[in-house]
Amino acid sequence: MAAAMPDDTGGMVVFDYTAWATRYPVLAQAVAQDQAQAFFDQACLYLANTPAGPVRDLARRGMLLGLLVAHIATLELPQAQGGQAGLVGRVASATQGSVTVSTAYATLAERAAWFAQTAYGAAFWAATRGLRQARYVPDARRRMPPWG
C-alpha cells in the first residue's frame, strides 16, 4: 500500500515503504526500500498517479499502486525470495520429483494475461474493471439545431 498525501503533493500518491511493508510482509523481507520505490515508479507507468488520472480517490489509487508494486516485485524477485524466477504466466501444472513446471499465458486477453501472473496482479485487474469500461457522459447543455 502507498500512503496518500493530498496536501503536499497536489493530488499524487507518495510511496510509503513502511505502510507497504506492513501490507505485504513476505515481499518486504526481500525488497529493500529503494528497490520498492523503483517498483512504485514503474507501477506509475501502468496507473497514472496524477489528479487527472482515472482514479481520483487518493486512498484507492494508493491501494492500487501498492498492489502493482507487489505484482512487479513478485515478477522481479528470484524464486528463493518469493518471486516467480522468470516464469511467465500462471502455473498450470507442477511436478516435484525431477521438478517440472508448466505455465499458461495465452488463455486470457493479452492485457489481462500480464496481470494474471500473480495474485496481486489479478487483484489489481479485478479492482480496476470499472476503469476499462466506457462511460457515457451526456452534455449538460441542450443544443439547438442550426436550422431553427
Rank of each mutant, 00 (worst) to 15 (best):
A2I: 04
A2K: 04
A4W: 00
M5Y: 08
P6G: 11
D7Q: 14
D8G: 05
G10A: 08
F15P: 07
D16C: 09
T18W: 02
A21M: 04
R23G: 05
Y24V: 06
V26F: 06
L27K: 09
L27W: 04
A28Y: 07
Q29V: 10
V31G: 01
Q33W: 00
D34T: 14
A36L: 00
A36E: 01
Q37T: 12
D41V: 04
D41G: 07
Q42R: 04
A43G: 03
A43F: 03
C44W: 02
L45K: 12
Y46I: 07
Y46A: 05
Y46C: 00
L47D: 07
A48K: 12
A48R: 13
T50K: 13
T50S: 14
P51S: 11
A52N: 14
V55Q: 12
R56L: 14
L58G: 03
A59N: 12
G62P: 03
L65Q: 05
G66H: 06
L68S: 05
A70Y: 00
A70P: 00
H71S: 05
H71L: 02
A73Q: 08
A73Y: 11
A73I: 10
P78L: 12
P78Q: 13
Q79K: 15
A80K: 15
Q81W: 00
G82Y: 11
G82I: 10
G82L: 11
Q84H: 07
A85I: 02
G86E: 05
L87M: 09
V88T: 14
G89P: 05
G89T: 10
V91N: 12
V91M: 13
V91R: 14
A92Q: 15
A92I: 06
T95I: 00
Q96F: 13
S98K: 09
S98E: 13
V99C: 13
T100V: 03
T100Q: 10
T100F: 06
T100A: 09
T103S: 03
T103N: 03
A104E: 12
Y105G: 02
Y105W: 08
A106E: 13
T107G: 09
T107F: 11
L108N: 12
E110L: 10
W114I: 10
F115C: 02
T118S: 08
A122L: 08
A123P: 01
F124V: 05
W125Q: 01
W125S: 02
A126D: 13
R129I: 01
G130F: 05
L131R: 10
Q133C: 11
R135L: 14
Y136T: 07
V137P: 00
D139H: 08
R142P: 00
R142Q: 09
R143F: 09
G148E: 06
